[in-house]
Amino acid sequence: MSDTHTTSGGKTSVWTKHQVFEKNSIFLLIGILVMISIGGLVEIVPLFYLKSTIEKVEGVRPLTPLELAGRNIYVREGCYNCHSQMIRPLRDEVERYGHYSLAAESMYDHPFQWGSKRTGPDIARVGGKYSDDWHRDHLRNPRSVVPASIMPSYPWLETTALDTSHIDMDMRVLAIEGVPYTKEMIESAASDVKTQGAAEDSLTAPFLKRYPKAITRESGGVQGRLTEADALIAYLQQLGTQVDFKLYDDKANIR
């Protein structure tokens, strides 16, 4: 396309003007930025205002503080580099992983963990597929349960005590981003972490009122303290379990 002054003539004048970009790297850079921004804006901005992008679904709740702490560890360890959380509406994926992912299922995820690479399988619906013990074994050393696994070992997770000193701040930031964390939820964050990681006690009922259907469990822990593995497992075990697909109406949400 770059005709030049050597073959000058009226009909090539547009291409001649294009040389401004070709010969000036700053202009070229600005030009590229403008073009990519237009593409990005057209693709992304409508998702914020089009009501039809997120379907109305029962059951999706914000993560509990313990699950949120687990999610932070998931992000910190870069699990998203090998695992997607996005079951596409394609036959082979639905056959293997279950119902395709709904937008509503990640509406409280900031940033979302859809991922783009599957070195390992998609884990959008891994919740309830394995036992806590299996996850513990698998995180410590994946080869102990899946001999041919190429997933790295994360043995430090079950020996590192969980740091929850910032979890209420995380929730506050997410609330600014639109996650419906109430004042009550944020204030009871630290105690909710303990409640979810313990067998049933008097705090369990109010906790379950805040986070319906969350699973509380006696977690292993190190000397009575919850570990990073406990939090990560609590996060993994709720993935894809919040929507009851026996009640969900596929036809009503075709869009």
Partner: peptide
């Protein structure tokens, strides 16, 4: 503004998977 162009074929990924 409130929707998107649906295309002549009326194709939708969620209808297709059904």
């Amino acid at each position: 503004v409130s929707s998107y162009t649906k295309g002549f074929l009326g194709w939708q990924s969620r209808a297709q998977i059904e």
